[in-house]
């Protein structure tokens, strides 16, 4: 008990109850951070990136597109918009999303805001593809 903590990943469409885990690494807006048992209570904003979970020696990766991590009394909740286990990622879909955003960006006459949206979409797609690779190796 002392060397694990409870992890739950909550998305608007699903709840992943990961149970007791020994290590979590998540992407904050300031870069990656790790959580070990006994972490100080915190509220951390998450960015697009990769979640790494270690449970009794087994490592698991997930793709996320941002949200929050709430750490409280050895209980971690990730409130994220999306969370996909590496093996469940639809690479085809990510690829199309990437191409579409790229194509949109090629059209120069667009507003700054729309351009930012495409850049974000591209980032998410790339992130998914990268994490999907993890499940193969």
């Amino acid at each position: 008990m002392a060397n694990t903590f409870h992890l739950e990943i909550i998305t608007p469409t699903r709840v992943f109850d990961e149970g007791q885990v020994s290590y979590l690494r998540a992407p904050s807006t300031n870069g990656l951070f790790g959580v070990l048992p006994g972490h100080v209570d915190a509220m951390i904003a998450l960015d697009v990136g990769e979640i790494k979970i270690e449970r009794s020696g087994v490592v698991k990766y997930m793709a996320t597109s941002g949200g929050y991590a709430e750490i409280k009394a050895n209980h971690v909740q990730l409130l994220v918009e999306t969370a996909e286990p590496a093996e469940a990622i639809d690479v085809q879909r990510a690829q199309t999303a990437y191409e579409r955003a790229k194509q949109h960006l090629a059209e120069k006459t667009r507003e700054l805001e729309a351009e930012q949206q495409d850049l974000d979409a591209m980032e998410r797609a790339l992130n998914r593809m990268r994490i999907a690779e993890r499940s193969k190796s």
Partner: peptide, 27 residues
């Protein structure tokens, strides 16, 4: 009122949490 450590800052968290909260409510 738990005493949290905020990362990157309380302001930033609130700034992004508010719109997200509204979206989730709408959902």
């Amino acid at each position: 009122t738990a005493d949290y450590l905020f990362e990157p800052s309380k302001e930033a968290v609130v700034q992004s949490l508010v719109p997200r909260h509204l979206t989730v409510q709408m959902w």
